[in-house]
């Protein structure tokens, strides 16, 4: 069980209202990702749920029980920290066993659970080592192991992959998703990386300056961003945002079109642009263009579309995929 409800949760640090007011519903078994730029309050929100910070106002409920005032350990949650926060003076075995020891579990049961967790996480050969003797990915697994053995009602992750190199990050992303599929336990995962959010989440919570900009499934956010912030944040490369004459002709202050929703041609099209940089990724090529009358735009071409610096390229937006925003930056329906 692990349903979590936040009602009007606020957090101020002195004068700074880091979380003005947040309402959020997390259902049991969901993989929820908090995503937003650095400093947007993701960690703070996670720590409020964990009980590592006091709320300034509002209530937090876990499985129907009000835990707003409860101590961290009493909330039945487990957390994986960005720095892993392993106990450097304990072996891997003792690290994983620590929460069980704190819960005064029998030694034989502890041993069994630690070994099970180690098997799942491929750590069986390293149980007697100290954290200092492990690689980054192994430390990450120990931190997860320490969380798993407690059988928490929810896992909290704070940017767990940001200290790993790119290749390892990809692997660990899969492993965590896999773990979620096996355990089916609620997970709240904080990241500033929208790719992690898109690939892992059942539900994404987009945060900006302590406010929730939008909540929804990855495809909802991709297809119907509620405002300019979400439109610009979700999707890679970023959505092209166009103001002026073209937007007005569509009845909007700002028009948005994703790089992958334009057709490209070397002969004719709605807009004429000059390639400044072409990034060849193999299957795809990202073209960074200077477009007449609009300015800088990004477009996705297939790998076969040969284009180089200085070439002229014509672009035509797929108008069914056009996003329109009003002068407050909010989405115009339809």
């Amino acid at each position: 069980m692990g349903s979590i409800t936040l009602k009007n949760v606020q957090k101020h640090f002195g004068e700074a209202k880091v979380i003005p007011s947040v309402d959020l519903e997390i259902t049991d078994g969901e993989f929820v990702v908090f995503v937003g730029p650095s400093g947007s309050g993701k960690s703070t929100l996670l720590r409020l749920i964990a009980g590592l910070e006091d709320v300034t106002g509002g209530t937090i409920t876990i499985d129907g029980k009000d835990v707003t005032e409860a101590a961290p350990a009493a909330r039945g949650l487990a957390m994986v920290f960005q720095s892993y926060a392993l106990y450097p003076h304990m072996s891997v075995r003792k690290n994983i066993a620590f929460p069980l020891k704190m819960a005064k579990m029998e030694q034989s049961k502890i041993d069994k659970k630690v070994e099970d967790a180690a098997r799942i996480l491929n750590l069986s050969d390293y149980l007697e080592r100290r954290p200092g003797q492990l690689s980054g990915g192994q430390r990450q697994r120990v931190a997860i192991g320490r969380a798993i053995v407690r059988e928490p009602s929810a896992f909290l992750f704070d940017e767990p992959l940001s200290n790993l190199d790119a290749a390892l990050r990809g692997t660990m992303r899969l492993e965590i998703s896999d773990l979620h599929n096996q355990l089916k336990t609620t997970m709240i995962y904080v990241t500033h990386d929208q790719i992690e959010a898109m690939t892992m989440a059942d539900k994404i919570v987009v945060l900006n300056r302590g406010n929730i900009e939008q909540v929804g499934s990855p495809m909802e956010l991709y297809n119907t961003p509620r405002n300019l912030f979400v439109a610009g944040f979700i999707g890679s490369p970023r959505m092209n945002l166009i103001e002026g004459e073209y937007a007005q002709s569509k009845g909007a202050k700002t028009a948005g079109i994703r790089p992958e929703h334009m057709t490209l041609s070397k002969e004719s099209g709605l807009w004429k642009g000059t390639v400044s940089v072409a990034e060849h990724l193999g299957a795809d090529t990202f073209l960074h263009l200077d477009v007449d009358g609009i300015g800088k735009m990004t477009a996705r071409a297939s790998g076969e579309f040969g284009a180089h610096h200085g070439d002229t390229v014509y672009l035509t937006p797929d108008e069914t995929r056009l996003h329109r925003f009003d002068d407050k930056g909010l989405r115009i329906a339809g």
Binding site: A71, P99, M102, R150
Partner: peptide
């Protein structure tokens, strides 16, 4: 690191 002490707190240490 403060996170280690927080981890201990999450792990149920008083």
């Amino acid at each position: 690191p403060g996170e280690i002490l927080e981890a201990a707190r999450m792990d149920g240490a008083n």
